[in-house]
Computed example of a mutant assay.
Amino acid sequence: MSDTPTPLPENPAPDPWLGLRRYTAARIALGRTGTSVPLRELLAFRLAHAHARDAVYSLLETERLLGELEEFKLPIYHVRSQAENRSQYLQRPDLGRTLHEDSSRALQDSAPASSDVALVLADGLSATALNQHALPLLRLLVPRLQQASFQLAPLTVAEQARVALSDEIGVALHAQLVLILIGERPGLSSPDSLGAYFTYGPRPGLTDDARNCVSNIRPEGLSYPAAAEKLFLLIQESLRRQLSGVKLKDETGLLE
Rank of each mutant, 00 (worst) to 15 (best):
M1C: 03
D3S: 12
T6W: 06
P12Q: 12
P14S: 09
G19I: 10
L20S: 14
L20Q: 14
T24N: 01
S36R: 01
P38C: 11
R40W: 07
L42S: 13
A48W: 09
A50I: 02
H51N: 13
V56L: 06
T62S: 10
R64S: 15
L69D: 02
K73N: 15
I76D: 08
I76T: 14
V79R: 01
E84A: 14
S87K: 13
Y89P: 00
L90A: 13
D94G: 03
R97F: 09
D102W: 04
R105A: 15
A106W: 08
D109R: 14
A118S: 15
A122I: 00
L125E: 04
S126H: 01
A134Y: 12
L137H: 10
L138E: 00
L140H: 06
P143T: 02
P143I: 06
F150A: 01
A153C: 04
E159V: 03
Q160A: 00
A161G: 05
R162K: 13
S166D: 09
L179C: 09
E184H: 12
P186L: 02
L188F: 00
S189C: 04
S190V: 05
G195Y: 07
F198A: 01
Y200D: 02
L206G: 11
D208Y: 08
Y224C: 10
A227S: 03
I235S: 03
S244E: 00
K249C: 11
K249Y: 13
